[in-house]
Design a binder for these strands. Structure first.
Length: 202
DNA sequence: GCGACAG
DNA sequence: ATCTTGTCGC
């Protein structure tokens, strides 16, 4: 028992929120996938209205309510949460993935598309190559190459999971694209639902 | 004081 | 986050 994960995770849930232009409408998606195949098994959506503005460093306060609602709609609880954003790689060391992990009690980590306050050296070109994500002299995560020759993603621990394991899962869940399937599918689903969902009522 | 700044 | 078409390449 080196990490907080009881054993090899069988399922993961990818989370993401899509916003509608010129309105407060948002759609949150929670997608359950099998780790072994990286394929979608279940999914849940929630439509809502944002009341909190986006402020760098406070993203969790804006998205967590919707993500929790979407998670509750999944028929089964996932073994791990894959979030679109940061975990510990945050100015206050408590990003979105930390909030969701603590609130749900589930292991969680974040996979962000861009660096925030942290710095990093370019990883080798190979898939799986990584370099430490640094905030001053502190290692807060990893700049991880999920696809050879493609820009790296930024992995950081959120709750009850180690950085090495989070990185391994990210690679395993990103067999073809830069963004791992959990988060990628959640993005696709929430975006599609937003377009198909009537602006008001039914 | 100014710029940068997850999504 | 979102606004946005085609195009080049495997």
């Amino acid at each position: 028992m080196r990490s907080g994960l009881p054993g090899a995770p069988q399922t993961v849930a990818g989370l993401d929120v899509s916003y509608e232009v010129g309105s407060d409408r948002v759609v949150a998606a929670a997608v359950l996938l099998d780790v072994a195949t990286a394929r979608v098994r279940e999914s849940a959506l929630v439509v809502g209205k944002v009341t909190v503005p986006y402020v760098p460093g406070l993203l969790a306060f804006r998205e967590v309510p919707f993500l929790l609602a979407a998670l509750e709609r999944l028929p089964v609880s996932p073994d791990v949460l894959v979030c679109d954003g940061y975990g510990i790689a945050h100015p206050r060391r408590f990003g979105l993935a930390c909030h969701l992990g603590v609130l749900t009690g589930l292991p969680a980590f974040g996979v962000a598309k861009t660096a925030f306050t942290a710095r990093f050296d370019e990883p080798e070109r190979a898939r799986g190559a990584w370099t430490p994500l640094l905030d001053g002299d502190e290692t807060v995560g990893r700049a991880l190459r999920t696809q050879a020759g493609v820009k790296p993603v930024f992995v950081s621990v959120g709750h009850r999971v180690g950085l090495a394991e989070a990185s391994d899962l990210t690679i395993a869940l990103a067999p073809r694209y830069r963004i791992p399937e959990p988060t990628r599918q959640a993005d696709l689903l929430s975006r599609a639902a937003l377009r198909e969902s009537p602006p008001t009522t039914g």
